[in-house]
């Protein structure tokens, strides 16, 4: 790519008319020549005017409800994660303080005072967190027509938050945060269980901190959902112990 080629392709680029390989080359050139960015932005604005020429249509109301059900769920998870980070930070600072003081004042005396203080502060922090979480959950009403199922798990997943959001149109979205990383060649898999009969459902990775994925099987008639770790691609029957589950 050179200047002449850039000039030749810039209109096709802003219209989205470059094949993928040509688009990648164009974008690399643009990254290396940021002085052209303003010109491309201006052309993009002109091309974008076509979007305003469409026959205007009202989106169906359930689209907003479904979207907000997922957004509200993610907001709750994100809010909880932020609080957990704050709690960790407080504990780390206290831990550092405890270590420094131990050197200064002597181990035995400080152990008593330090632990007492640590316990009091921790208790207060936990109370604050619980209050704030409860408050946040109160001021974030679940969108009408949707229902959330929270999965619970073992100590290994204590930081993880996983919810199934059942939308008004019967579709279900799985929203997960802070699931432990898993090794290459493995995947998380959701199971929809009716009595003793687990049916395989969506597989998902935890590449992003927060993920959401559609649940591809119906929850109709099921009494439990669970998550296991399976070989990549998923299994037809669970090959490991459920790490999180919820009664429906």
């Amino acid at each position: 790519m050179n200047q002449a080629r850039f000039e030749e392709l810039k209109e096709a680029y802003v219209l989205g008319a470059l094949p993928d390989d040509e688009r990648r080359v164009f974008e690399e050139y643009l990254r290396d020549h940021p002085e052209h960015q303003a010109e491309v932005d201006e052309l993009s604005g002109l091309a974008g005017l076509l979007a305003l020429s469409t026959h205007e249509m009202e989106p169906p109301p359930h689209l907003r409800r479904n979207l907000m059900a997922v957004v509200e769920s993610e907001a709750r998870l994100s809010h909880s994660a932020t609080r957990r980070e704050a709690r960790r930070s407080v504990l780390e600072r206290l831990s550092g303080l405890f270590t420094a003081q131990r050197f200064a004042l002597g181990a035995a005396a400080l152990a008593v005072v330090g632990l007492l203080s640590w316990n009091l502060v921790l208790q207060g922090t936990v109370d604050d967190l619980e209050g704030e979480v409860a408050k946040s959950e109160n001021v974030r009403p679940q969108p009408s027509g949707s229902e959330t199922v929270k999965l619970k798990g073992s100590a290994a997943t204590q930081d993880a938050r996983v919810e199934l959001v059942r939308l008004e149109d019967q579709r279900t979205i799985l929203v997960a945060q802070n699931l432990p990383p898993i090794e290459q060649g493995r995947t998380y898999q959701l199971w929809v269980i009716d009595g003793d009969n687990p049916k395989p459902s969506s597989t998902f990775k935890t590449g992003d901190n927060l993920i959401s994925t559609p649940v591809r099987s119906s929850l109709e008639g099921a009494d439990t959902v669970a998550i296991t770790i399976e070989p990549a691609g998923g299994s037809q029957a669970p090959t490991s112990t459920p790490m999180m589950s919820a009664k429906l």
Binding site: M57, E58, P59, R64, L67, M68, V71, A75, H79, R140
Partner: peptide, 20 residues
């Protein structure tokens, strides 16, 4: 993380996005 602000954005631009 303000979901209500996001809802306001959707209300403002959802129609244009859907039309396109």
């Amino acid at each position: 993380g303000d979901a209500e602000a996001f809802a306001a954005l959707y209300d403002r631009h959802g129609r244009a996005a859907y039309s396109l």
